[in-house]
Design a binder for these strands. Structure first.
Length: 1056
RNA sequence: GCGGGUGUGCCGGAGCGGUCAAACGGGCUAGGUUGAGGGCCUAGUAGCUUAGUGCUUGCGCGGGUUCGAGUCCUGUCACCCGCACCA
């Protein structure tokens, strides 16, 4: 047989496909569309190896299959080309990441094209191109404008190797996902976040809508992790003194001041409330001076201003030297235009310019109260204030507006320190004996008293030095903060500890600790000798309340809990919550583990975040018209963020007021780029828009997404979030981007490890392609196992596949085109039917097995139709050689564009195929006997068959059932039948079931009425084969000696 | 600890509750073909048995459901993956 010139065949067909633009996807509403997408690769410098080939082959087979099935297929490829490796390589080589990236991409494209992948290359995109990242910036601004982006100081994850912060999703096991050996550090930094949490609920519930592998769904579910519970407000005891400032024309003897003063004093607070001078004709300077002179301001001071008092208090804060504890603004305003648009006569007397930066510096905490019903000061003023001084805004609805009501619990609450905690066990609230705040909490220090400062700081130092990684074995540790909280139901004061086992950004970062009923709290309480109070009793009463050995976390009934005592604890959860709600002390709530997405990165090779810092206007988004904000080229790689080294990038003008301003220098997490690339493919060349709506509406959502499972909680969450956010911004009209997801396995090298350049166990497609042809490699990779499993490369294995490919070739060289036998046609149609399902379900390995079996049964003469259908079936897997063979049997068209064969059920003939099976068995048996007896020229062959041969008794029973459905008559038949007789007892039990549902009996070979008849039919074949006389005899039960012990299951053969 | 998955020959892997478990591939052994090797072809590859068309065992282990279980249920063990102090 002539050698196959694989390279020539591959190049020939790749060129022809390309010239004919067979894979170009065009919007065509007359056809059903199919969007098949692979996760686009990061173009690493080391190029493609067999592992990549495996991944892409999975999608290519699917796309080709779908195309042949009449779908208008979109199958694109692009490159996730921003990212750290290129930047690091550039630093090493003192070059530019662009150079590395673009070379790598060119290399990728060349290699991918050589694999014969049927991509529509016209849609190729690269995320590092300005044309692409311009839209990243545009989306970012849209999100910002819609309150989906914010900047905040937080405890963030820092990877030293990456030299940047990371999102929560990108930290695995306390380490960076790219550097599993490198522990991340916690740093307090101000960073950009995207409000993914806004969609937490939808991200969770919509998992139902999509057909994804179960484990991926579960991983996302765990990641979002919803839990139901109760939010309860605990008041924090503080050593505070209050200064109250009243409003215009007011007095501290009026309105809510007397109430507030009494309530505060009731709680042991010092309250200084002195009437401001000249309140009907105020003078700011005079009043400020008065306040400063008559009151003492220190770190324990809470300044409360009402109405006009808010202005005075802001002015006071501009003047003082040391920061105070807290500022409460009850009905504050910033500009003199009021709700009814009437200027008050006093407003001219005020200077409405504030030094907000200084104010912020001089106070640790700001609370702004705004009254929705206020006719004096509208809500917008509250919001404006909030924006300027970055305080917490509380919207209230008082019975009488403008905080004049006698009783103003909201103002009192704002003055006091309250902490809402989240618990899933409100039923144990009577067992709270202490509180624990996270050691990483931003506001921890505000709870620490002077006396405890040293101890807490010691503790913080200690836990910083312990490893993040093995938190599980970490002993629960903490330090007393010096502060106390009041249990809202019992009124008990309990100590607040800082603890290492509380997560800062889940719930409120503080927990109520019930040592009797929570293991962690229990361990902590034991260590620090904190009392343990049992409030849940097991139903069997088996609990030693004085000597708990561990926390009792099971269900039971409530004790020691006043009116709730005696309730089942599940019921108590509801009752306690209801009670708290009625007292305005808490409410039912849900919590998610999902955090907002931290997207700032302090690195160069990414999309610049399009924000601008203006001294006057604050943080401002760049103008859409100014996009793209290009990455500067005049940069020096070295210490820190390279963008800072650019001379002109930093300086800009404020888009609002045109004064000098500074650009944001952080770039975006590259997961931002990959969160919407599947949309861009639909219209990848569009210069004016992110994409054309009609294109996206036609192609999306992605019908089949293919990629690795490592992105379960990263890319796949972000992309789902993006889809929902863009939908709500009006860009999309669907909820989920990827309807179906397939996780491919990984290819391992000879050494059993995942194939990778760095491990040095790669097999290159080029090498294999030259020797065996890329089709052989595809065939082999897909035949090993189901493509969702990890597989191992084997040189021997590909030899086996090559044998098949070669024999297909040589078969086509010698086959006579004529007529196909009935049984071949039957087998062909069966294969079509089964393979169609197998490929549809990604069971490529099974499809290949069936194809091999079909090939085995092909005869030296077959019809052109049969041969063509065989090629069609093989085509998605081995596209090049099948095209070649397709041409060789006289076709001028492309096999690629030929419709997938349809199964003709009527041609499937179980009996015909079964006969073949018998024929083969009998032939093989005869051959065995011949060789054992060393007979070369048999004179006569006698085949002795038993009654039972090839019968299951059920099949026989089915025959009888077809004759009669009467139980008694049936049993008569059974007893008269040699075969069934033995099973009579069983049959007696089965019959009722079978009569109910005859399907219980498998349909297989039911029509094998008589083995004799069957064998008679193949007698001629055997005669021909062995060139001798054939006799078929049915054995008498009694004469068949061996059969008496047990019935033979195969025919006996006697040769003379 | 929690959640998910997987356990079938020498290996990768098939096996709708019912044909004859181990298809198909790889490996290995023997024979044939060939100057040798390779390639190709044929047969064998759980145990017992002189041999068989015979017998026994057999789908991680133990129970159960069923006339019938590799397949369904349950418990258990082992391995793999994911999450991990989330109150």
């Amino acid at each position: 047989m002539a050698e196959i010139d694989h390279i020539a065949i591959q190049e020939k067909w790749q060129k022809r496909w390309n010239d004919a633009k067979l894979f170009k996807a065009v919007l065509d509403k007359s056809k059903p569309k199919f969007y098949c997408l692979e996760m686009f690769p990061y173009p690493s410098g080391s190029g493609l190896h067999m592992g990549h080939a495996f991944n892409y082959t999975i999608g290519d087979v699917y796309s080709r299959f779908k195309r042949m099935n009449g779908f208008n297929v979109l199958y694109p490829m692009g490159y996730d080309s921003f990212g750290l490796p290129a930047e690091n390589a550039a630093i090493k080589a003192k070059s530019h990441p662009r150079k590395f990236t673009e070379e790598a991409i060119q290399n990728f494209i060349k290699q991918q094209k050589a694999l014969g992948l049927s991509y529509d290359w016209d849609r190729m995109l690269m995320t590092h191109s300005e044309e692409y990242y311009k839209w990243n910036q545009s989306i970012f601004i849209k999100l910002f404008e819609n309150d989906m982006v914010y900047k905040k100081k937080a405890s963030v994850n820092w990877c030293q190797k990456c030299d940047t912060v990371l999102a929560n999703e990108q930290v695995h096991d306390g380490c960076c996902w790219r550097h599993p050996e490198d522990e991340i550090q916690i740093r307090q930094l101000e960073q950009w976040f995207i409000k993914t949490t806004k969609y937490a609920e939808e991200l969770l519930t919509d998992l139902e809508k999509i057909d994804w592998p179960k484990r991926i769904k579960i991983m996302q579910e765990n990641w979002i992790s919803k839990s139901f519970g109760t939010e309860i407000e605990f008041e924090i005891e503080e050593n505070t003194n209050f200064v109250l400032l009243h409003g215009y024309n007011g007095s501290v003897k009026k309105d809510f001041f007397p109430y507030l003063k009494t309530e505060l004093e009731k709680r042991g607070k010092k309250v200084s409330a002195k009437d401001l001078p000249n309140t009907s004709d105020p003078n700011v300077a005079e009043q400020v001076e008065f306040v400063l002179k008559n009151n003492h301001f220190d770190e324990n001071t809470v300044l409360v201003g009402h109405s006009l008092g808010t202005i005075i208090s802001l002015k006071v804060l501009e003047k003082i030297q040391k920061p105070i504890k807290k500022l409460v603004l009850a009905g504050g305003f910033l500009t003199p235009d009021f709700k009814d648009n009437k200027k008050r006569d006093f407003t001219d007397k005020f200077d409405f310019k504030f030094d907000f930066e200084k104010i912020k510096r001089n106070v640790n905490e700001i609370v702004i109260l705004s009254d929705k019903n206020d006719y004096v000061i509208p809500l917008e003023q509250g919001h404006k204030l909030k924006e300027k001084i970055n305080g917490d805004l509380i919207e209230t609805t008082a019975k009488i507006p403008h905080f004049k009501a006698e009783h103003e619990p909201d103002v009192l609450n704002a003055c006091l320190k309250k902490w809402k905690i989240f618990t899933t066990r409100p039923d144990t609230i009577y067992g709270v004996t202490f509180m624990v705040i996270s050691a990483q909490h931003q506001k921890l220090m505000s709870l620490v008293t002077k006396e405890q400062k040293n101890e807490v700081e010691e503790f913080l130092k200690k836990i910083k030095s312990t490893s993040e990684k093995d938190t599980e074995e970490l002993e629960k540790e903490g330090a007393f903060t010096g502060s106390y909280a009041t249990n809202p139901l019992t009124g008990d004061k309990v100590p607040i500890y800082a603890g290492n086992f509380v997560v800062a950004d889940y719930g409120s970062g503080m927990v109520m600790a019930v040592p009797a009923h929570d293991q962690r709290d229990y361990e902590f309480a034991k260590k620090y000798s904190i009392p343990i109070k049992v409030v849940i009793n097991p139903n069997d009463n088996k609990i030693d309340k004085n000597n708990l050995l561990k926390a009792y976390i099971e269900d039971g009934y409530v004790i020691n809990s006043r009116e709730f005592s005696g309730l089942n604890n599940e019921l108590a959860k509801d009752k306690v919550t209801e009670y708290l709600e009625s007292k305005n002390l808490g409410k039912k709530t849900v919590q998610y583990k999902l955090r907002d997405w931290l997207i700032s990165r302090q690195r160069y090779w990414g999309t610049p975040i399009p924000m601008i810092y203006c001294g006057k206007c604050g943080i401002v988004a760049a103008k859409i018209d100014d996009l793209p904000i290009k990455l500067p080229e005049d940069i020096i790689f070295g210490e820190g963020n390279p963008i800072l080294s650019s001379k002109h990038f930093l300086k800009t003008r404020c888009p609002k007021c045109n004064s000098d301003a500074r650009r944001e220098t952080d770039t975006m997490d590259t997961f931002f780029d990959s969160s919407w690339y599947y949309l861009r493919y639909t219209d990848a060349k569009n210069q004016n828009e992110m994409f054309d709506r009609e294109q996206v509406d036609y192609w999306l959502p992605v019908d089949q997404y293919i990629g690795g499972a490592e992105h379960a909680c990263m890319h796949l969450v972000y992309a789902r979030f993006f889809t929902k956010a863009l939908r709500d911004l009006g860009y999309l009209s669907f909820d989920e981007p990827f309807l179906k997801l397939f996780n491919q396995g990984m290819l391992h090298g000879y050494d059993g490890f995942v194939m990778s350049k760095s491990r040095g166990n790669v097999v290159l497609p080029e090498t294999i392609s030259e020797k065996y042809g890329i089709d052989t490699a595809r065939f082999f990779l897909l035949s090993i196992a189901s493509p969702d499993k990890d597989i191992e490369w084997s040189d021997k294995g590909i030899e086996g596949s090559y044998r098949f490919i070669k024999s297909v070739f040589s078969y086509f060289e010698s086959v006579k085109i004529g007529v196909s036998q009935k049984r071949t046609v039957s087998k062909l149609n069966r294969t079509i039917k089964e393979m169609t399902i197998d490929i549809e379900e990604f069971k490529y390995n099974l499809a290949i097995i069936k194809l091999r079996m079909l090939f085995e049964s092909l005869k030296s003469e077959e019809s052109k139709d049969s041969l063509e259908k065989f090629l069609m079936l093989l085509h998605p897997i081995c596209p090049h050689i099948t095209e070649e063979l397709w041409e060789s049997i006289g076709n001028k068209t492309f096999l690629t564009t030929t419709p997938w064969p349809k199964c003709d059920e009527s041609k499937i003939d179980d009996r015909e195929e079964f006969m073949e099976q018998i024929e083969m068995t009998v032939k093989s048996d005869i051959n065995t006997v011949l060789s054992l007896a060393k007979i070369t020229e048999p004179k006569k062959i006698t085949i002795i068959i038993s009654q039972e041969w090839k019968y299951s008794f059920l099949s026989r029973l089915k025959e009888k059932i077809d004759e009669t459905r009467d139980f008694r008559e049936l049993m008569m038949h059974v007893l008269l039948d040699e075969t069934l007789k033995k099973h009579a007892q069983n049959i007696q039990k089965i019959i009722p079931n079978v009569l109910k549902d005859p399907k219980k009996i498998p349909p297989v070979m039911l029509d094998q009425h008589s083995e004799k008849k069957t064998l008679e039919q193949i007698k001629d074949v055997l005669k021909n084969e062995f060139k001798t006389e054939i006799e078929i005899v049915v054995a008498e039960e009694s004469t068949h000696a061996k059969a008496q012990a047990s019935m033979p299951s195969k025919p006996a053969i006697v040769i003379e």
